[in-house]
Amino acid sequence: MTVVCALSDLLPDRGAAALLPSGEQVALFRTGAGEVFALSNIDPFSRAAVLSRGIVGDLDGVPVVASPMHKQHFDLRTGTCVEDRAVSVRVYRVRVEAGQVVVAA
């Protein structure tokens, strides 16, 4: 378990990246509804570490982030790509404890 930042460091409906001790990068998202999600920060299509910089929103009620590189959408809950369900990114377990965002890794 790694404490990565305070919940207040995350802007609603915007992502931020965090560096884990393993060297992995997670993209943290705080939705306007107050939920927090964590995905791998690497966009599987472009292979660049940019998913945290995508726009957060919803498609058909599903919370998603749009890759800033070529706009594929990823389900924040499952990591599955909406446009190509064969592609997904790793999902990290994440919770908020005493105002701190904690990632399981």
Binding site: V4, C5, D9, L10, A16, A17, A18, L19, G23, Q25, L28, S40, I42, P44, F45, R47, A48, A49, V89, R90
Partner: peptide, 30 residues
Amino acid sequence: FVNAPGAPDPTVTFREERGQRVPVLLGVPE
């Protein structure tokens, strides 16, 4: 990185081409 404000993204690396730096792309998609 929100938890390491000064740290550069370790996946970004460069090589040289015609006297300037150009990107090396990540070899293996995660």
